[in-house]
Design a protein around this nucleic acid. Structure first.
Lengths: 147, 147
DNA sequence: TTGAAATAGGACTAGAGTGGTGCTATTTTG
DNA sequence: CAAAATAGCACCACTCTAGTCCTATTTCAA
């Protein structure tokens, strides 16, 4: 249905939160703050840690902090970590396996769309997400379909 | 996983094919031409017909033709017919239901991405897909991520 | 007029993916 | 030493996807 998974959605929220804290934040804290189930939050933070976007601090008073600054973490990276490789259509990166590769009319336009989305996600950094989240609290213009 | 369904993919192929034929094309024909399972092709063509993009001709020598010219059929419309409403994240069009709407950092950037994708899909017509499919048989530049 | 070829409109199924939970072990602090 | 936290799993219920199948109806053509 062309939708980002909820885990990716949550991951963005959690990373944005971590970006605003200089000390480790626990899964408990974020789960209560955003009213997410605690095991869910814990799992996502674990996944982000093993993907190298956060560092963990174990033990009491432990939690997670960003392992890099928010400018260097991209939306593309987050999606990749949570959802896996992004391929708009199956054949985007496997043209040789396609049955009708030579006369397939979809490759051109769909790979073009794929590249646009990929490009946007690579250009969108966690820091820009944090900034937008702080400033654009009433995104009327963003919701309407017409420009 | 942020992927178009195969049915959407097939639908684009089939519509492109119909765009090149002045006479009705049957499900049988396209299924053999593109090596798709016949029932699959038949179902997709039925669905496209009920969505108003094709018209059906029943009986022997029947089949489907485009109900409008290819310039007026957009990728957005095809995706909508096969995959349903496009929402990059659940909350794109239901901001009031969101638990953390006020301090949700994802709305801004994700609705922006949503709108870009939507816009591209609305700008991409079936006729442009057909044209690209005819001319760009070696889409090297489209596959590479850099550029 | 009758049979073949085609659509109409369903229901249906197996398998994959999603969202979410749970458990045990380990680490660290107070 | 106990509490609080992460590590690394496995696991489940549910939904969605891809694909199949069946019966009825329409139309052409021999």
């Amino acid at each position: 249905m062309l939708r980002l998974s909820k885990k990716t959605d949550y991951a963005i929220i959690l990373l944005s939160h971590l970006g605003g804290s200089p000390i480790p934040v626990s899964a408990q804290e974020v789960s209560t703050h955003y009213r997410l189930p605690q095991p869910m939050a814990a799992n996502i933070l674990k996944q982000l840690a093993s993907a190298g976007m956060t560092e963990s601090v174990r033990g009491q008073r432990g939690g997670y902090i960003l392992s890099r600054n928010a400018e260097s973490i991209t939306l593309a990276e987050i999606v990749q970590a949570m959802d896996g490789e992004f391929n708009l259509v199956e054949c985007v990166h496997e043209e040789d396996r396609c049955k009708v590769a030579q006369n397939c009319p979809t490759r051109g336009p769909l790979t073009a769309l794929h590249r646009r989305i990929q490009h946007f996600m690579e250009e969108t950094t966690l820091s820009s997400i944090i900034t937008e989240g702080l400033t654009e609290r009433e995104p009327q213009t963003l919701v309407s379909k017409e420009s």
